[in-house]
Design a protein around this nucleic acid. Structure first.
Length: 313
DNA sequence: CGCCAGGTGCTGA
DNA sequence: TCAGCACATGGC
């Protein structure tokens, strides 16, 4: 067990903001893991909720994390999981106040920041992020989590920590080896061939995951768009959540709702919103996106938008 | 039951 | 370049 300073950070908000699909809480007497995103509806007080243990993966290693005020308590059986590794994954080295100041340019984002302060864009594994967001297209978060969970059970390695039992995320090799038929059997639907084709692209060395980290946003996006099942939105998600491209600004139906604020009665296309947002928010537009996204999905009475589904209540 | 979900690829103007 | 359409599946 070790401790990591975590100022200006909310673990719960960061894990439940739709950027990651594989953090769990083991609540109460039942040892059944529950998605971190769904775990906030229990009768626990804010204080207790803040101190819940979250189980997740950094690469292939299981980690257990709990927030207590301005610090994290962490545990892992893997010596590779060091305080620095934790700090990097949760982006705790980033000066969040400076980032938020840079994007705080209007009342809409101001409200989002006020409500979601402490939300950080995680630095997730590139391949896992790519594969996950191929599954995420035209889908809802609950089912995405289920699909990915079944993928891991079928093709990952069993790992555990204390009472938690899970499966690591499958390698590109494991996914390239399987068949479209088997993937469909896991409920992936029409995404099955996309996922397999993308895994093959990686295995064949035609998409170099390790190089995307080094290149700029435009080059990264271009490379990602070459994958089957990856369009503008998914490419932006993967660039932002998996490769630290903070200019990326993914637009889905929730962002269309959030950005109605800027285009009252004007006609909106996703390309228009994307180009506008990047100019409007600047080099950390991706942070603005994530704050707005979480804001419209959790805020009540947000200018007449429908209230949230039970998923987040 | 019908509608919705962190959209993409294909087609035809 | 851009609108219109099909596409799997499960939660609500």
């Amino acid at each position: 067990m070790f401790e990591v300073p975590a100022p200006e950070f909310s673990l719960q908000t960061s894990l439940s903001s739709g950027q990651t699909f594989r953090w769990f809480v083991v609540d109460g007497p039942s040892t059944r893991p529950v998605s971190a995103g769904l775990a906030r509806d229990s009768a626990l007080s804010q204080e207790e909720t803040g101190r819940r243990w979250y189980y997740g993966f950094l690469g292939q290693s299981v980690v257990k994390v709990q927030q207590e005020g301005d610090r994290l308590w962490c545990q892992s059986a893997d010596p590779a999981i060091t305080p620095n590794r934790i700090r990097h994954y949760f982006a705790l080295d980033l000066q969040l106040n400076d980032v938020l100041s840079s994007i705080n340019v209007d009342m809409q984002i101001y409200q989002a920041i006020r409500q979601c302060r402490g939300l950080r864009v995680l630095r997730q594994d590139g391949w896992e992020t790519l594969a996950s967001f191929i599954c995420a297209s035209f889908n809802n978060i609950k089912r995405i989590e289920g699909m990915i969970d079944r993928l891991c059970q079928a093709y990952g390695q069993p790992v555990g920590l204390n009472g938690f039992r899970g499966f690591s995320f499958p390698t590109p090799e494991a996914m390239a080896r399987t068949s479209e038929r088997q993937l469909r059997a896991l409920g992936l639907g029409y995404r099955a061939p996309y996922l397999r084709a993308t895994a093959r692209l990686v295995v064949d060395g035609k998409l170099r995951i390790d190089q995307i980290q080094q290149v700029d946003y435009d080059a990264a996006k271009q490379a990602l768009l070459a994958c089957d099942g990856v369009g503008d939105k998914v490419a932006d998600c993967v660039a932002l959540f998996g490769f630290e491209k903070y200019e990326a600004f993914p637009i889905d139906v929730w962002m269309e709702r959030a950005m109605r604020y800027y285009f009252r009665h004007r006609r909106m296309t996703r390309k228009l919103l994307h180009d506008y947002a990047r100019r409007h928010f600047g080099p950390y537009a991706g942070y603005a996106q994530q704050y707005l996204y979480h804001y419209v999905r959790t805020a009540r009475g947000n200018r007449g938008q429908p209230l949230l589904s039970s998923e987040h209540e």
